[in-house]
Structure formats: C-alpha cells, structure tokens
C-alpha cells in the first residue's frame, strides 16, 4: 500500500516535472473558460470556440516549427515576414490558374528551401540563428514590398479555402493543429531523430560524442521548421476570401512567445510542442475573454501582459516546488 503510494507519488512528481508547464497552461485555459463563461455564457458558444481555436491555429502550427528550432538552441525571427511572402506566393499561384494542390504545396516547398538555406548558414558558417534570421527578415520584408506593392489578391478559385472547411464537424485549422501537435510530440519523444533534437540543444558535446552530426541536425531542424511555416501559411492564406500581400505585423513575436511560454526552454534541450500549442490557445482565449468581460480596450494589452507574466511566474513557482 505504502510503496504503491510512493510509486504513484513518484510517478506524479515525474509527470509534474516533465509536463508541468503544459499542465499549468491547460489549467489556466480551463479556469479561464469556466470563469468567463459565468460572466458571459456566449463565450463558450460553438462559434466563439471556433474563433479561438480555428482562428489562431496558424500561429500554433508555426509555433510547432519554432519550438523544434528553439529546442535545438536556435530561433527564427523572420517567421512573420516569411509567412507574408509565402502567402503571397500561394495566392498568386492560385489566381494565375495553377492547380490548387500546387498552390498549396508551393509554400511548403519554398518554406523548406528558404529555411534550409538559413540552416546551412547557421550550421556551416557558424553565425547565430538570431543574426541570420534578423537579416533574412529584413531581406524578405524589403523584397515583398518591391515585388507586390501590397496588392490585394482576390478571386481565388473555389476549393482553395482549406481553412474554411469542416471535417467531421471540426474546422480544418484546429484539426491540423491537433494532428501536427500529436504527431510531432510522438516523433520528438519516441524516435531517434526526435531525441537527437533535444541532445543538440541540451548538450551538444554529448550529442557529438554519441555520434550525432550536429550541423546536419541543425539544418534538418530548420528545414522541418520551414515545412511548418509553409503549413501555417496555407491556413493563414485560406482563412479569408482575400489575401493581403504584406507582412503580418508582429507575428514573429506572437509565435516566439507561444513557444517559450509553452515551456520550450530558450537555452534549448527541453520543452514539448504540446506546450506551445496550448500557449497559442491560451493567448487567443485571453484576448477573446477580455473583450467578453468588457475590459476597457485601452487597458487590454496591459492586462494581457500581466496574465502572461502570471503564467511565467506560476511555472517558475511550480518548478521550485518540484525541485525542493
């Protein structure tokens, strides 16, 4: 009896250590949903849940890629600019008469290509990723302005709007977010490649001695991130019936915040994509709930900041308790 208790305690604390941030986020989401729905029961209406989940899923999908990168000890600040460029490519192809599958595939391929190049510069030239991606952000942003001038892309063909579709009663963006989160969580915790990512970020020396090609590993992590940026772009570009060929403002900060608040350690080596997806949902839910509660719009961002800070501090408090 006693040992069983101890065992379950041990299991419990192990669970807390490994998935603590995910639990904090999940609990915050549930508390938020319960409290806000008491104030305004429409908050939990099906449409609003769709807005929160499906309307922000593209951020979550991009944050999956970002989390993979951050776990290997890298970062990408050009993600917003790249999504702007890829969405323009995606929409332009669709209206120029190329088949829809091609318009959907192009952002994924270009995303992989651009980020592989970044990965190669980072890994083989030894320039920190923040520097390369800061430069890349500047290049992509300037390039997009010179090429498009910010035109609206309209009249995409029927069937292009993937993000507006339902599948078994659930919006496609939410399904995509759930699917990719579970898939990457499984891959990262159960495959050799997945575990090598943690090793590259957590302890590169040990990773090297255990036979992992660090440079190749970093390039592949960037390529996979590029794939997720492409996937995110498809959701982003097909959500509305029009595409604006500009760089969405501050998107890189939103994506990075979702990843790091989701528990991905910025020093590399720890964290899961479940955390980043939950953090995406939490931020979207906070933004929506503040409108539902009727907080003065002028103070909205301040309260959002306080809530983000609380999440961070709660996680730190939890870690201490677990450690001590």
């Amino acid at each position: 009896m006693n040992t069983q208790n101890e065992n379950s305690n041990k299991f419990f604390s192990r669970f807390l250590i490994n998935y603590g941030q995910e639990l904090v986020l999940l609990a915050s989401i549930i508390i938020l949903f319960v409290v806000v729905s008491q104030v305004n029961h429409r908050f939990l209406g099906g449409n609003n849940l769709n807005t929160i989940f499906a309307g922000n899923a593209y951020i979550g999908v991009a944050a999956i890629g970002m989390s993979i990168l951050i776990i290997t000890g890298n970062i990408d600040v050009s993600v917003g600019a790249l999504i702007g460029v890829l969405a323009t490519i995606c929409g332009t192809l669709a209206v120029s008469g190329y088949p829809i599958w091609f318009a959907w595939t192009a952002p994924i391929l270009v995303g992989i290509a651009v980020n592989s190049l970044v990965g190669i510069i980072v890994a083989y030239a030894g320039i920190p990723s923040i520097v390369v991606t800061l430069g890349m952000m500047s290049i992509l942003r300037g390039g997009l302005i010179s090429v498009t001038g910010g035109d609206w892309i309209t009249d995409m063909p029927e069937g292009f709007f993937l993000a507006q579709q339902d599948f078994m009663g659930i919006r496609v963006p939410l399904l995509a977010l759930i699917f990719f989160t579970i898939l990457m969580f499984y891959i990262m915790s159960n495959t050799t490649w997945g575990r090598s990512l943690y090793a590259i970020g957590g302890n590169p020396e040990a990773a090297r001695t255990s036979g992992i090609d660090l440079k190749k590993g970093v390039v592949i992590a960037f390529a996979v991130h590029g794939m997720f940026v492409g996937l995110s772009t498809i959701l982003f570009a097909t959500q509305l019936n029009i595409i604006q060929s500009t760089v969405p403002p501050n998107l890189e900060l939103t994506v990075i915040t979702a990843s790091v608040i989701g528990g991905v350690s910025i020093m590399g080596g720890t964290g899961t994509v479940i955390g980043s997806s939950l953090a995406t949902i939490l931020f979207a839910a906070i933004g929506s709930s503040l409108i539902f509660i009727g907080v003065s719009a002028y103070w909205l961002r301040a309260i959002m900041g306080i809530l983000i800070l609380c999440t961070v501090l709660a996680d730190m408090a939890r870690r201490r308790r677990v450690v001590s």
Partner: peptide, 14 residues
C-alpha cells in the same frame, strides 16, 4: 488581416 477577422468574429459571438 486575420486579427481583424478574429476581432470581428469575437464581436459577432459576444
């Protein structure tokens, strides 16, 4: 674009 879309949706839902 998307934030405007989400904000308008939130108003409709609220």
């Amino acid at each position: 674009n998307i934030l405007s879309f989400n904000q308008a949706n939130t108003l409709i839902n609220k």
